[in-house]
Design a protein around this nucleic acid. Sequence first.
DNA 1: GAGTTTACCGCACGATCGTACGGTATAATA
DNA 2: TATTATACCGTACGATCGTGCGGTAAACTC
Lengths: 173, 173
Amino acid sequence: MEGLGGLTIGGLAAEAEMRKSSVFSLFGSKQELQLAALNGAIAQFTEEVWVPVADLEPGLERLLGLCDSWLSYHQRGVLPGGCFLTTASVEFDARPGPLRDAIAACMDRWYGVLEHEIEAATSSGDLPSDLRPADIAFELNALAAAASYGFKLSDDPEVFERARRSMRRALRA
Amino acid sequence: MEGLGGLTIGGLAAEAEMRKSSVFSLFGSKQELQLAALNGAIAQFTEEVWVPVADLEPGLERLLGLCDSWLSYHQRGVLPGGCFLTTASVEFDARPGPLRDAIAACMDRWYGVLEHEIEAATSSGDLPSDLRPADIAFELNALAAAASYGFKLSDDPEVFERARRSMRRALRA
DNA sequence: GAGTTTACCGCACGATCGTACGGTATAATA
DNA sequence: TATTATACCGTACGATCGTGCGGTAAACTC
């Protein structure tokens, strides 16, 4: 398995060459472990996707760079199981609890980042002002996620080209 | 749990008010059950999404109707766990075997349907000919899937409006 | 150096799940 | 009617998983 549900204390212990009970006592519960894994994945995502473009000019330029680093992150398969947030969303969207709440909060934060950037591009005139930032953010996220699991399913890197063209189209419409 | 992995023989037996062993002997193995569930979900999807628009004019008209019935299908939450194919894709994209193959085949068939319709719209002049059908099909699918799990995660029906606007934008670019 | 914290281990329990096998009615068939 | 197939049941086994508890050795603190 993959994703947060496929994360097992025993499996993690084996990878760390420790005993199950050690790993368990280190986190206290599986749920804590899952939350920690989610935070770790988010930190890594930020490091690999956002940081490389943080120095670019806010607005359309950084947005375009972000799309590229985003797709590259997925294409390199940095972590198995594809887009962690998408996997987690699909897995927990119908299971209320702290995990679902944390995932939803992460998604909201990420949407906030995207929308903020889109608004910057709009106010500097690089994007038409009749576009709703939330629409574009939703669209970009949908494309990145679909590219991630579409690639893992088809093994065809062409999906990243498709996603890239669609993103470009969304950002100059 | 949800999706194909969350499908358990015991759980199904409870729903059917039967015994585990009965359900098991009815399918022979869990994998056969999962394949049957996949086929059932595809049949239902076809019934609820494709059939209602089958009589429309091939091309853009049917494409637009398809997007609406597609989103409506997800919004009504016809089956728990959101878009079955997307859930299954995310769940099995890294687990080689008959399940993954069947899921990939279903996706391919669905993409084929979409592309065929897009080509009809292009050749009748309702869509610009510089658009690649595979790109548009990918985009529509990404939007529908994202709307499905986005809604289950946020409980905000606005995502369907967003997805609808993005789909419309993709189809008249 | 005594006491306490930290990191890890070993073992065991209960729950869940897929799977297997033998049994028993009822229905179909010849 | 005799035979066979079908549908379902009861029970059991082995594997996996989360969890709890007592123990031990090293590290740290006073």
